[in-house]
Amino acid sequence: MDQSVFERDPSDPKRKEVTPLLKLVLELGPLMVFFFANSRGEWLIERFPVLANIGGPIFIATALFMVATVLALAVSWILIRSLPIMPLVSGIVVLVFGSLTLWLHDENFIKIKPTIINALFGVILLGGLYFGKSLLGYVFDSAFKLNPEGWRKLTLRWGIFFLFLAVLNEVVWRSFSTDFWVAFKVWGTMPITLLFTFAQMPLVMKHSLEPLAGKGAQGKEK
């Protein structure tokens, strides 16, 4: 596949900047749709009886989650003419396991989807380190520049964190109700991920090749 699908020159006239708010909506929007559809499944069926053919709330939520995921990827492509690697891989897994959930009418498939995605990312990152590659740099390189040591440390931390999320998802969906699991995906997993991300800022600042405070000064000097 053409690499330009994933990476686009910032000078490309077709490329548009995505505001932080819009980026957040594209990333969290499908998850919020999933949460809303599951919690208000009966309400949706009352207003759109055709949805009853899909099944209960979790199955309606799965179907809408798949639609929202495709729309988010489509909007991302239209705006920036690229498909971020992690959302793209996540989207593919959502479509595969979502389809299995609806086809076999088995909610366990959508429940193990986060386990598969997080375990996959964790194994890829840690496997890359084993072979001397800090693959996280290919994902975050456009956001900030780090020295090799910084990328190795950050990749290791994220690799372990992804495996932690995989184990956490298994514990939650196997130990609690479906409604609790859905709520935890939104109000548990996301805050944990945000806290972990913010906790990495000291490492990023320590190993950054372009200190945030120095970018403005560098621009003036030029």
Score class of each variant (00 low, 15 high):
residue 120 L to S: 07
residue 45 I to H: 04
residue 146 L to D: 13
residue 81 R to N: 14
residue 61 A to I: 11
residue 170 E to D: 12
residue 69 T to H: 12
residue 71 L to I: 15
residue 163 L to N: 00
residue 77 W to R: 15
residue 120 L to K: 01
residue 120 L to A: 08
residue 140 F to K: 09
residue 104 L to A: 03
residue 88 L to T: 10
residue 173 W to R: 13
residue 94 V to K: 09
residue 56 G to P: 09
residue 154 L to M: 00
residue 110 I to T: 13
residue 167 V to E: 01
residue 76 S to C: 07
residue 82 S to L: 05
residue 162 F to N: 06
residue 61 A to C: 10
residue 52 A to L: 06
residue 115 T to I: 15
residue 83 L to N: 00
residue 140 F to G: 05
residue 117 I to C: 01
residue 145 K to Q: 11
residue 123 V to N: 05
residue 63 A to D: 11
residue 161 F to C: 03
residue 175 S to D: 00
residue 130 Y to F: 10
residue 162 F to W: 05
residue 107 E to W: 10
residue 49 P to S: 00
residue 142 S to I: 10
residue 84 P to W: 10
residue 49 P to V: 00
residue 75 V to E: 12
residue 96 V to S: 02
residue 64 L to S: 13
residue 111 K to W: 11
residue 103 W to Q: 02
residue 165 L to D: 01
residue 127 G to K: 03
residue 113 K to G: 11
residue 102 L to R: 13
residue 173 W to D: 10
residue 158 W to C: 09
residue 47 R to L: 12
residue 118 N to T: 04
residue 60 I to V: 15
residue 82 S to T: 02
residue 45 I to N: 10
residue 171 V to K: 06
residue 174 R to P: 03
residue 174 R to Y: 04
residue 149 E to K: 06
residue 161 F to V: 00
residue 177 S to H: 12
residue 163 L to Q: 00
residue 163 L to S: 07
residue 78 I to W: 12
residue 155 T to D: 03
residue 65 F to C: 15
residue 138 Y to F: 08
residue 127 G to Q: 01
residue 146 L to P: 12
residue 95 L to R: 08
residue 143 A to E: 13
residue 147 N to R: 05
residue 160 I to P: 02
residue 88 L to P: 04
residue 97 F to M: 14
residue 97 F to Q: 10
residue 128 G to E: 08
residue 167 V to G: 07
residue 62 T to D: 12
residue 82 S to E: 08
residue 79 L to P: 04
residue 106 D to R: 03
residue 92 I to T: 03
residue 154 L to I: 07
residue 88 L to S: 10
residue 175 S to V: 04
residue 168 L to G: 10
residue 46 E to Y: 05
residue 75 V to Q: 12
residue 167 V to A: 05
residue 149 E to G: 04
residue 155 T to E: 08
residue 126 L to R: 05
residue 71 L to T: 10
